[in-house]
Design a protein around this nucleic acid. Structure first.
Length: 492
RNA sequence: CGGGAUGUAGCGUAGCCCGGUUAUCGCGCCUGGUUUGGGACCAGGAGGUCGCAAGUUCGAAUCUUGCCAUCCCGACCA
């Protein structure tokens, strides 16, 4: 099982797929391009969601919920946004089925139940939300409006991959309205930083915060800020985006407010989102040949206790002792699983919880009870140590923190080693092929050059890092003058 | 939508080229027992429209045609 995962260098996609399925996070479903998130995967998502939700509330946001369906006329109101998503929309055209007269027992779409106006299944909710905000905003006193929604969206992609790109996915989308441009920009930057903090501190994945180029920008946005992470195969992954929407949606939906001078103005908007793709980022940033490596702060199971029975009399003795630690650990807020399943032997369980990425495993048998010890194994380094039972719970808390820090350091080391400067085209291509990762190179700032580089190398500009160092240089492709390096990479 | 591949039990598969008894093997599952410090063992058992449809044939998992589905590589994208 786990051994089959070792081929990931040769075929990373296959390895990733197998890992997601075997570790019990998710599986493909009967619906093309859609996945079933299994209980273990959903528990991970709930932990991600709960922490983000807390951070949103700490920054003044509240939750609401808007409809799944967007009438086509609303959807097309903001033209750039509509155009950007048009190719991947699922559309509801009918509202009823009926018995098929030609095929008994089968159903058909009732042609008489055609909707007068088609409904677009939301690929994103700007349209329906701004149409609603129009009625909520009259005065500057109604601003800022800081709302987040937890929802599912549908994007009918050509090619899908578990967690990274599914036809339907879960996400949150924040949609805010402000009285001034400066305040909206501030919100946009604030939220991309919230994402960066979350991903680094909780997912233990280092990110680059930056701004997208015009061609990579969200459809309908004036500016798109993003966090970019690096996966273990050297490809980049956009892990979250925050958009400054200017007055585009306000104008499209006529959302105006009266300012203090009693003058009408269009509001300024932002939107920002992260999705279940974060789970894909988590998997590809930390996992190894034995399976997942989950960060303690998000792991659904932080500690697993595996009893090692010997003879029928040992079970009550070991179970009683384990119960003491389970109680202590739970009192410290740690999620513990006690696996006393008799079907599987300890060795099987060790491998299974490694596959599932449980950060800490405690093995406890009669030998330990005699010695007042337990065997503690950490998932990140696979190191095993004998711990005294005295003060065990407190020691585990420290160990979990150490694992969290360590996997972040490991990922950061890898990421930092994979940001490489390139000044010549040949070098640029060679680095992409052989070393992989981010390549920092000069670019003349034009969309034409960006497109040519993409065609020639399959690398895109992931972002222009925030607070980027300014330096004179020449464009990697055209040799034209440039004032800063931007980050290129091949990406998911 | 182009290129490649694959569909046989819950999962992974053999058989197909060269048609022929009751479709192979492993994992998993059920019952009973023995076990348990790195993926246990014994005994018994359940589980199949061989992707779908048509054709060829005395006979099709196997040959022919059509269709469907899925995966991988592109184009597209969070």
């Amino acid at each position: 099982m786990a051994k089959e995962l070792t081929s990931r260098k040769e075929d990373y996609s296959q390895w990733y797929n197998d890992l997601v399925i075997k570790s019990g996070l998710a599986d493909y479903s009967a619906v093309r391009g859609c996945m079933v998130i299994k209980p273990y995967g959903y528990a991970l998502w709930e932990n991600i969601r709960d922490q983000l939700d807390k951070m949103f509330k700490e920054t003044g946001h509240v939750n609401a919920y808007f409809p799944l369906f967007v009438p086509k006329s609303l959807f097309e109101a903001e033209e750039k946004n509509a155009e950007g998503f048009a190719k991947e929309c699922a559309v509801v055209t009918h509202y009823r089925l009926k018995n098929n007269p030609d095929k008994p027992g089968k159903l058909m779409v009732d042609p008489e139940a055609k909707l007068e106006e088609e409904l677009v299944v939301r690929p994103t909710s700007e349209a329906i939300i701004w149409n609603t905000y129009k009625d909520w905003i009259q005065s500057y006193r109604d601003l800022p409006l800081l709302i987040n929604q937890w929802a599912n969206v549908v994007r009918w992609e050509m090619r899908t991959r578990l967690f990274l790109r599914t036809a339907e996915f879960l996400w949150q989308e924040g949609h805010t309205a402000h009285a001034t441009s400066a305040e909206a920009v501030e919100e946009t930057v604030k939220m991309v930083n919230v994402y960066a903090d979350f991903v680094e501190q909780f997912m233990a994945v280092p990110v680059v915060i930056g701004v997208k180029t015009e061609s990579e920008r969200f459809a309908g946005a004036e500016d798109t800020y993003c966090i970019e992470a690096l996966m273990q195969d050297g490809k980049a992954l956009q892990a979250g985006t925050s958009h400054f929407l200017g007055q585009n949606f306000a104008k499209a939906f006529d959302v105006q407010f009266l300012n203090k001078e009693n003058k009408k103005e269009f509001v300024w908007a932002t939107s920002w989102g992260v999705s279940t793709r974060l789970i894909g980022a988590l998997i590809m940033a930390h996992s190894d040949d034995e399976g997942l490596v989950l960060p303690p702060r998000l792991a659904p199971i932080q500690v697993v206790i595996v009893p090692v029975y010997k003879g029928p009399d040992s079970k009550p003795v070991i179970d009683d002792k384990a119960a003491v630690f389970i109680k202590q650990l739970k009192a410290l807020g740690i999620s513990v699983k006690f696996d006393d399943n008799d079907n599987n032997r300890p060795g099987w369980k060790f491998a299974e919880y490694e596959l599932k990425g449980v950060p800490v495993r405690i093995a406890m048998g009669l030998r330990d009870i005699e010695n007042n010890t337990v065997e503690v194994a950490r998932r990140d380094t696979k190191e095993k140590k004998i711990y005294s039972m005295d003060g065990l719970a407190e020691a585990i808390v420290l160990l979990l923190e150490d694992i969290q820090t360590n996997i972040y350091s490991q990922a950061k080391l890898y990421r930092d080693e994979h940001i490489t400067n390139a000044d010549q085209w040949d070098e640029f291509v060679k680095l992409l092929d052989e070393k992989t990762g981010f390549i920092a190179a000069h670019w003349d700032g034009t969309a034409e050059t960006e497109e040519k580089i993409k065609e020639a190398s399959k690398a895109t500009i992931r972002c222009i890092p925030l607070n980027n160092k300014q330096e004179e240089g020449k464009c990697i492709l055209t040799g034209k003058p440039s004032s800063q390096r931007v980050l290129f990479a091949r990406a998911y």
